[in-house]
């Protein structure tokens, strides 16, 4: 969880790039306080809490990944912070403003989940409409629209009706419209979905570029491999609750380390005591891999191996991947105490 000092330390004039009028360093770009959203079934009136007591503060210039399984409440959280849905409890502040105020959205870019734009327009016309809604002068928005379409690889399709766009192409239009107003805060609901591998790496490059320009990004995803390399911090949601928040490295440090000891020519008889000691032994051809769970027993295992004259090929520490961590957290084996609750 971020702290005030933390935020103050990271933000400031450089992160804002001099763009901001509200460049008060202590004002978080986005803060959620005890946010809750309860839906009621219109027939049975049974309440269902989609977002539960979410508290979070974004730091300027970071890329924050909101992770969680399907139905965790990521999209609902995003709708709440845009004012598209109203919270049952708690509040949202966008640079100190309520999301209901239109001005709070003037420096915000938003990519909806599975976006859908007006069928009857071309991307150029849609971006022009977007620019008009932001109050951008016609000449500027025309130039920006064609630049963005070029940038997102849609230059050749600028005058084709959006009706004829594929999913990935629509996703790119969605990114373009989110960038039309040169936002200070980008909110992207599953930006990678529907994109081909080239598209994904392009988007990653784009996001890094935006971060370098001082833009703060909040993105939701469940494709962790895509998220891990670009996010400064991630938050993991589970059943509406934000169960863990932190940088990728701190989250993973708390995970159990493991060593993989690869050896050459180890017979089953020699392997038996290791198995008995609770280590996994896996045989691949003439090679065997022994997974050792903690540092203390590693010393013992290695000593035994050397005494038995086994040729140790390599010893590798294996960190938990974000994906494994994610699955472990969601299994509920280690519901983090520090993160929330």
């Amino acid at each position: 969880m971020s702290t005030i000092q933390d935020t103050a330390h990271r933000s400031g004039a450089t992160a804002l790039g001099g763009r901001g009028i509200h460049a008060v360093p202590t004002m978080p770009i986005l803060s959620l306080e005890g946010l809750r959203k309860t839906y009621r079934d219109p027939m049975t009136l049974k309440p269902f809490t989609a977002v539960d007591e979410v508290t979070l503060e974004l730091e300027r210039g970071e890329i924050f990944g909101l992770l969680g399984p399907n139905g965790a409440g990521k999209t609902t959280t995003i709708k709440l912070l845009l004012g598209l849905a109203r919270p049952t409890a708690g509040r949202v502040l966008l640079e100190g403003r309520e999301p209901r105020e239109p001005a709070s959205r003037s420096k915000l870019g938003y990519l909806p989940e599975n976006p859908c734009f007006y069928d009857h327009l071309t991307p150029l016309e849609y971006l022009d409409l977007t620019g008009a809604l932001f109050g951008i002068a016609p000449a500027i928005r025309r130039r920006r629209a064609s630049d963005l379409l070029e940038r997102l690889g849609l230059g050749a399709h600028a005058r084709k009706a959006l009706r004829k766009f594929s999913k990935g192409m629509t996703q790119r239009v969605g990114l373009a419209q989110a960038l039309m107003n040169e936002p200070r805060l980008l909110i992207l609901d599953e930006p990678m979905s529907g994109l081909d591998p080239v598209g994904r790496s392009e988007v990653k490059a784009l996001l890094r570029e935006q971060r370098a320009a001082g833009v703060t990004v909040l993105m939701s995803s469940h494709v962790l491999a895509e998220t891990e390399p670009i996010c400064n911090r991630v938050g993991i949601m589970k059943q509406g609750r934000l169960v863990e928040v932190g940088t990728v490295s701190t989250l993973l440090q708390s995970g159990v380390r493991e060593w993989e000891v690869a050896v050459e020519g180890m017979s089953d008889a020699v392997a038996a005591p290791f198995r008995a000691g609770g280590h996994d032994v896996e045989r691949i051809g003439s090679r065997s891999v022994v997974r050792v769970r903690n540092g203390d027993s590693l010393q013992d295992v290695l000593r035994q191996m050397l005494q038995a004259g086994i040729h140790v090929h390599s010893v590798e520490p294996r960190r938990e991947t974000l994906e494994e961590h994610f699955v472990r957290v969601l299994d509920g084996r280690t519901v983090a105490r520090g993160g929330r609750s």
Partner: peptide, 17 residues
């Protein structure tokens, strides 16, 4: 229905507008 309104309402515009 098609959720085209989401992208529009994330712009600085009131619903009544």
């Amino acid at each position: 229905e098609r959720r085209t309104i989401y992208a529009v309402m994330a712009k600085p515009i009131r619903r009544s507008e």
